[in-house]
C-alpha cells in the first residue's frame, strides 16, 4: 500500500465558541476521487479551508507527504502541491480567460521579476492554452472571464487550479448552481481529471457522488461519522439517520 499523501490527525476548528470541526482523523492515499458529504453547515468547507491553508486548525495536525503543514502560509500550499477551487466561484473577473490561467501558471515560475517582459514566457502561454483545452474553454480564451456562463466560470476555476500540476486537488462543490446539462459536462471533466490525480470533492448531488467516488466521508456537526465505499455509505444507518427527513432533494 502506498504512503498517505495527506494525513489528518485529530483536527479541530473553533470559531469563537462555535465548534466547526472536531477530532477529524483520516488519511488520503494517492488515487482517485474521495468525496466529502454532509448536511449544510457540517464543516465541509471549513475542512477544505484547513487543508488548503486558508485557516490554520485550532487543534491537530495536517501532514502532506509526511511534512507537517503547520506554519505554512496559504500561498505556499499550491507550491507544495495542493490546489483548490472554492464553493463560490473565485476567478479574476476582469482578466481574459487566457490571462486567468496564464497568471496562475506564472506564479510557479516568476513572481517578483520586474525586468523581463511577461510575454517572454511562451511556455506559460502554451501551458495555459492546454489547460483551457482540457476543461473545454479554449475557444473562449480571449473573452473576459466575467462574461462566461456560470458553468464555464466554474470550469475556468478548475483550469486555474490545475495549471500548477497539483498532486492533490480540492474541489468545493464544483457543480454548485449548475443545471443538469452543465453538471453532466462537469462530471465528465472530473472523470477525466481523476485518472491523473488525487481529488477531494465536496458535493451535495448524491447521484453524482455515488457514481464518481471511490470513497466517501460523511461529516456531521464537524465530526466524521462515516467513511467507506459508496456502497457502505448508502447502507450506513447513521448516515441514513442524519439525512432522513432533511429534504435535500438528492435521496
Amino acid at each position: 500500500m502506498s504512503a498517505p499523501l495527506l494525513a489528518v490527525e485529530n483536527v479541530g476548528m473553533k470559531f469563537g465558541g462555535f465548534v466547526a470541526l472536531q477530532g477529524v482523523t483520516t488519511e488520503f492515499r494517492p488515487g482517485r476521487v474521495t468525496s466529502i458529504i454532509g448536511p449544510n453547515g457540517a464543516g465541509k468547507s471549513t475542512f477544505f479551508n484547513v487543508l488548503s491553508g486558508v485557516l490554520s486548525p485550532s487543534t491537530g495536525t495536517v501532514r502532506f507527504k509526511g511534512q507537517d503543514l503547520k506554519g505554512t502560509r496559504q500561498h505556499e500550499f499550491v507550491h507544495r502541491g495542493i490546489a483548490r477551487s472554492y464553493q463560490i466561484t473565485n476567478i479574476f473577473p476582469d482578466l481574459s480567460v487566457h490571462e486567468n490561467v496564464r497568471v496562475a501558471a506564472q506564479a510557479g515560475r516568476s513572481r517578483y521579476n520586474i525586468w523581463t517582459n511577461r510575454n517572454r514566457f511562451d511556455e506559460l502561454d502554451a501551458r495555459a492554452d492546454k489547460a483551457l483545452e482540457s476543461v473545454g474553454l479554449f475557444a473562449k480564451r480571449n473573452e473576459t472571464a466575467k462574461f462566461l456562463a456560470h458553468g464555464q466560470q466554474r470550469a475556468l476555476e478548475i483550469a486555474i487550479a490545475l495549471i500548477s500540476g497539483p498532486e492533490l486537488l480540492l474541489l468545493d462543490e464544483p457543480t454548485a448552481g449548475m443545471g443538469p446539462e452543465e453538471t453532466k459536462d462537469m462530471v465528465a471533466l472530473l472523470e477525466r481529471l481523476a485518472a491523473e490525480r488525487t481529488i477531494l470533492l465536496v458535493e451535495h448531488k448524491m447521484k453524482m457522488i455515488l457514481g464518481l467516488s471511490d470513497r466517501i466521508l460523511v461529516l456531521h456537526h464537524g465530526q466524521l461519522i462515516a467513511d467507506g465505499t459508496p456502497h457502505d455509505i448508502q447502507t450506513d444507518p447513521e448516515v441514513r439517520r442524519v439525512y432522513l427527513g432533511q429534504n435535500h432533494g438528492y435521496a
Partner: peptide, 14 residues
C-alpha cells in the same frame, strides 16, 4: 510589462 506587473494586476483583480 513584467511578470511582477501581472502579479499586481492579479492581486488587484482578486
Amino acid at each position: 510589462n513584467s511578470p511582477f506587473g501581472a502579479a499586481i494586476e492579479a492581486i488587484r483583480e482578486n
